[in-house]
């Protein structure tokens, strides 16, 4: 599976892809660490040097220390602990990193925390770090959770993103953020406006877990390429064979009655 990875590794000081996992032992609800596994394996399979660090409660975050920041989901209680620490210690460094072209992927509870605020079912509002112009409100303990398989179409991508969602909060976007995609199956941000996720600059927020990246390798590669190109402009990734992912996608899309994207079909053949 050779690529330009080795060459790139030789050109740089240290790893070409530096991933920072925020609160791995606190926000880890829905197999979220699978996203990190996919990022690192896909880099390794290409011979691309990769490093993963984690930053937890009370620890400083170095905006120049990573090219890719990941935040997963947690239960309300864990989310509250994380929100407090995020706002007090990590807001400034994260904003600096984004301004400098770093990639941020925030899933589910993490997605809610990169917005302006999250109003939980009970208790006080949780402040967000404001990386994306959005806010989330939980309609109350009696409201139904938005749970199920989720398929969205993303502009500029041949194949839809596939995953699972499970959230009580309803998210709405302000003018500063674009939706990540349009819902084909499932609820998305709020179950009403047909949009899912949000993006701005290289920040991506989504309710898609499953986890997100294993079954959406094209999206994983897009994020890897963006992260690496922060310090290596013009960088492109060599393709990998993703037969297992393609078959898992096909089975789920067929079950949901959604035709597979053309690229997914092409990969199977």
């Amino acid at each position: 599976m050779g690529s330009g990875g080795e060459v790139l590794g030789a050109l740089t000081d240290g790893p070409a892809l530096r991933i920072c996992h925020l609160y791995p032992d606190l926000l880890n609800l829905y197999g979220d660490r699978g996203n990190i596994m996919v990022l690192t394996q896909r880099a390794r399979w290409r011979g691309l040097p990769v490093a993963v660090t984690s930053v937890g409660l009370g620890e400083p975050l170095d905006p120049a220390g990573a090219d890719f920041f990941f935040i997963g989901g947690g239960e309300d209680r864990q989310q509250r602990i994380a929100a407090d620490d995020l706002c007090r210690r990590k807001r400034g460094p994260l904003q600096d990193a984004v301004a400098d072209g770093a990639v941020v992927l925030a899933v589910c509870g993490g997605y809610q925390l990169v917005g302006r605020y999250y109003r939980p079912a009970e208790g006080e509002d949780l402040p967000g770090v404001g990386l994306l112009d959005l806010w989330t409100e939980h309609p109350g303990p009696a409201a139904r959770r938005l749970i199920g398989n989720l398929v969205i179409e993303v502009e500029g991508m041949d194949a839809p993103l596939i995953g699972f969602e499970n959230h009580g909060g309803r998210t709405r976007l302000g003018p500063g953020a674009r939706p990540l995609g349009r819902v084909r199956t499932g609820f998305g941000n709020n179950g009403e406006d047909g949009w899912e996720g949000a993006t701005d600059r290289r920040v991506y927020g989504t309710y898609l877990h499953g986890p997100l990246l294993p079954k959406n390798p094209a999206f994983a590669d897009r994020l890897i390429a963006e992260a690496v190109s922060r310090r290596h402009p013009g960088f492109t990734l060599a393709p990998l064979s993703d037969g297992n992912a393609a078959r898992a996608r096909e089975v789920m899309l067929a079950r949901l009655g959604t035709p597979a994207g053309k690229s997914a079909r092409a990969r199977v053949e």
Partner: peptide
């Protein structure tokens, strides 16, 4: 459980 994301845990 309809969500198999736990396989990654």
């Amino acid at each position: 459980g309809r969500d198999v994301s736990w396989l990654w845990d």
